[in-house]
Every structure is written in C-alpha cells, then in structure tokens.
Nucleic acid binder design. Structure first.
Lengths: 184, 184
DNA sequence: ATTTTATCGAACAGAGTGTTCAGAAACTTC
DNA sequence: GAAGTTTCTGAACACTCTGTTCGATAAAAT
C-alpha cells in the first residue's frame, strides 16, 4: 500500500478519535475531520464514501484488535461445569477493552455506541452461543442466550460508562455470581 | 388549549408515527413530516424547535401512558422475599407495552431507541432501586442494581425486536428464573 | 526519466434546516 | 355578529453540510 494512503488514513482515524473526545459523532462534520486531519476534501471522499462508513470501518478495525487473540472457546468445553474457563475468557476480553480505553470511551457516545453493541453481540454469540444453552436453568434456549449475552454487554457498557474503575476480575466475579445456574 | 393547536399537534404525532413505520428516525426530514401532517412549515416550527425535540416529547408522552397506572412499589415490600409482587408489576409493564405495540415498535429503530432506554431506566430505578439492593446476592449494591435493571430492559428490547410473540407471563417467568437470589 | 498514483482545493449542485413575515382562517369575547 | 386575538399558511430567505468534479501539483513506483 502506498505510504501516502497509510498516512492520510491514520490522519483521518486520529482526527476522528480526537474529535470524539469532545463531541458526539452526530455533531462532528466532515469538514471538521478534514481540518483536524489536515487533508483535502476530495482526499477524504476518495478514502471513505461517508462519515458513517468511516466510523464503521474504524470500529471494525478496533474490535478486530480487541478480539484478536481472544481464543474462540472450544465446543468441547462445557462452561456450565467449568466456570473457570469462561471466567478466564471474559476477563481476557475486559483486559483488551482496557487496552483500548481511550478509543472505546470516545466511541461510546451517541450513535456509535450501537456499532459497539453490534460487533460485541456478534462476537459473543459465535463464541458462546453453543455452550450457553447447556447452562442449567429451566428457560427456553433462545431466552437463556439473550439473557446471558445481553446482561454481559450491559455490564461492560456500565463498566465503561463509569470510567473502568473496577478491576476486570472484580467485574467478572460479580457478573458470574449474578448468572443463573450452578454456582460452585 | 385551542382546538387548532391540538389538531396540528396530533397531526404531527400521527405523521411521525406513520413515517417511523417505514423509515428510521434519522432518515426522516422535517419536510416529510410536514407533508404527511398536511401543515405549513412555520406551523411545525411554532410547535417544536427541532425534529429531535418532537421525538423527545412524543416519547415522553407515550411513556407517561405506559407507566401511568403502574403503581410505584412501596418501600415496605421486600421483593427479595415476595417475588409475587415484583412479578405482577413487571407483567403489568409488559401489558402496557403491548397496548402501545405499534408506536413502540416504530420507536425502537435507530437513535430513538436510546430515548426508550433512558426513560425506562429512569422509571425502573425509581421504582425498584431501593428494593433491589435487598436481594440476596453477594455483590456490590451498584452492580446488583445495574444487573437487574439492565438485564430486564435488554430482555424487553429483545422481546420487542422479535415481535412481542411470547406472552408477558412467559417472559417474566423466564426473566425471574434467570435472576440471582432466592428462588422459591 | 518516465509513468502511474495520490493529494490538493476551489468551485459546484443539491438537500435540509430554521426564520421571517404578511395575509388568511379559526377561535374568543362582548 | 362584529371586533379583537390567536393560530395557521406558504413563499422567500440565509445558512450549513454533503458529496462530486477537475485540473494542477506532488510523491511513489518502475
């Protein structure tokens, strides 16, 4: 890839990230991004079709980092019996979020929060979907799934909104205590 | 209040509600609302400052209906011991949502979903905030609160997104089975 | 050195926003 | 039911933002 392209692309990403610390995504104009990134108008539009597409791609890239070395749990693992494996994986995710602290907190305002939720749900469903249904509670599988994943995502959002003060271990411990099923 | 004002106001509400069935709120323009409501441009702006303010007020009004005769639970009730009272109240809320089925499903797309969440959280916190902390789980009070309320709101959203197919009783039953604490 | 590719930025058309204002229409009051 | 008040109307306006186009310029690749 051309060095110039890389340069402008990161300039745009940095500009948006910076602006997101001060303004909600909806409030930011393309012109502001262009000025902040110090690039020409047409250059922006040769890289991204719209402002929304920029956000989409930026989030996609970030989440691919957040979930990169997060091992997909083996189907053979039974998280209803082996809470330790699940705990480790969830903690791992929180630590990754902690790494991207600045970016993620910026993204969690306004419309862009939905992208977070979308990617997060997608990932968790593929990672845990199968194993969650083995949990020991007498409710429909679909319900169980939405409850476990939904409450986790909500908890993470809550954690982020409050400034990521608590340690990941503490959050996951509380979360798992609140989950239904066997508690060793 | 002047009959003319009432007429235009409901015309605007109806127009937006109708449009929300076809388009996301972000996509709808003030001009579309005006055309659909058959009113003059300046009339719209004499009633509402912006499109966002219109949505805000419309939601506010709707939720005041949804929660109107929903009794605020007495502090003396201990929902950790008396699951029946809590169950009844939650079911009641779901039935109210069912009454406003059309409106609520329209609102639950795009940015407007956040308003739903905001009002819902606000209400539940004032209704249950105090009593939830008495639930029998060994986690910090703040965590307990966010978990119970957050997972409930998520469950309701999930229920709405899937078309409100299940009966309120069924949803609340599953929800309460998933909650931590004593299960009689 | 030559060719390819990326950037620049001004200029442009188009869509939407929110305001203004004078006249028409509908309500209220006496 | 006439006079006065309030609301509605809709065209015109200034403004902001978007996304495109294009010739000139600079940087990278071969």
């Amino acid at each position: 890839m051309d060095r110039r392209q890389i340069k402008t692309r990161t300039a745009i990403y940095d500009a948006l990230t910076g602006l997101l610390r001060k303004y909600r995504f909806e409030e930011i104009t393309v012109q502001q991004i262009i000025d902040e990134a110090n690039i020409g108008r047409s250059t922006f539009y040769s890289h991204f079709e719209t402002k929304d597409q920029l956000l989409e791609q930026m989030c996609k890239e970030m989440f691919s980092h957040v979930f990169s070395d997060t091992l997909t749990p083996e189907k053979s693992h039974d998280y209803s019996k082996n809470h330790e494996d699940m705990r480790a994986l969830l903690e791992h995710i929180l630590y990754h979020i902690l790494d991207h602290k600045e970016n993620i907190r910026s993204i969690m305002n306004g419309e862009s929060e939905k992208i977070f939720t979308r990617y997060f749900t997608e990932y968790l469903e593929s990672a845990f979907g199968e194993v969650i249904v083995h949990m020991d509670v007498d409710v429909p599988d679909a319900f169980k799934k939405q409850f476990v994943i939904g409450s986790f995502i909500h908890t993470v959002k809550w954690w982020i909104a409050r400034g990521l003060k608590e340690k990941p271990e503490k959050i996951i411990e509380s979360y798992m205590k609140c989950l239904p099923g066997k508690h060793p």
